[in-house]
């Protein structure tokens, strides 16, 4: 896999908060046991700097993991594979910290027309159907769903608006669209056609392909309620 270094996370985070990002999601995609401590320290350094909501994910598999991250200033956590392996974790986290704290990330792609949940950053397929899993996640107490379409991620061809609209209509919790952002129009599309409650992007912001203040002006012109 080609990796590009987008810069120092603490500086980037501060810059995004400053330029009008509405929320910051920090996903440590290579999280391992050894790196857990580094993550907590990084979370602390980011949390000190930013005045917007801050979600942290990557390698979280227990109530204790979440406790550490919250104590270091995270507002919410995002869990993915560990929720599939141990769905009770969603209930436990919601009971201990409240649903508002629990974001369940779901990676899925279409296999023979069926949206199938994948694990380990989209590498390992499961038996789970996206919509059934999303429903279960809501019932277990997730506060938000971060849905990444593996079919769209990295393509810059737009978000998975059809699947997003189905999720958003079916569920009564906010859905964050992820995967596929390439142009400002894609953001307008996912709010209008995908009925998404929020949209997440990384590379288009990191590599200055889309400017957040400009994007927000465009969204406002398109009658999407947005904080300027």
């Amino acid at each position: 896999m080609d990796l590009r270094d987008a810069g120092d996370p603490v500086e980037l985070a501060a810059k995004y908060a400053e330029t009008g990002a509405d929320e910051l999601v920090f996903l440590d995609i290579s999280a391992t046991e050894e790196r857990r401590k580094t993550l907590a320290d990084l979370v602390l350094r980011v949390a000190e700097k930013i005045n917007i909501p801050f979600t942290v994910g990557g390698g979280i598999s227990s109530v204790e993991d979440v406790d550490v991250l919250l104590q270091n200033g995270a507002d919410k956590v995002s869990i993915n594979s560990s929720a599939v392996k141990n769905p009770q974790l969603i209930n436990d986290l919601a009971a201990k910290f409240g649903s508002q704290c629990v974001v369940v990330a779901i990676d899925a792609k279409q296999i023979e027309g069926k949206w199938t949940v994948h694990l380990v950053g989209g590498k390992v397929p499961t038996e789970l159907d996206l919509f059934e899993w999303a429903k279960e996640v809501e019932q277990r107490g997730a506060g938000e769903i971060l849905f990444t379409s593996m079919d769209h991620d990295g393509t810059k061809n737009g978000f998975a608006d059809e699947a997003l609209a189905k999720l958003s209509t079916m569920l009564n919790i906010p859905i964050i669209a992820s995967g596929g952002a390439g142009t400002m129009q894609h953001f307008t599309d996912t709010f209008k056609n995908g009925k998404s409650d929020a949209a997440l992007a990384a590379s288009v912001f990191h590599f200055h392909e889309i400017d957040i203040p400009e994007l927000k002006q465009v969204l406002k012109k398109n009658n999407i309620p947005v904080r300027i």
């Binding site: 949390a47 000190e48 919250l70 104590q71 270091n72 507002d75 910290f97 409240g98």
Partner: peptide, 14 residues
């Protein structure tokens, strides 16, 4: 009851 670090940090920024 809940995460109060964010509030502490916000005042520290002030």
């Amino acid at each position: 009851a809940g995460n109060i670090q964010s509030i502490k940090f916000a005042f520290e920024r002030l």
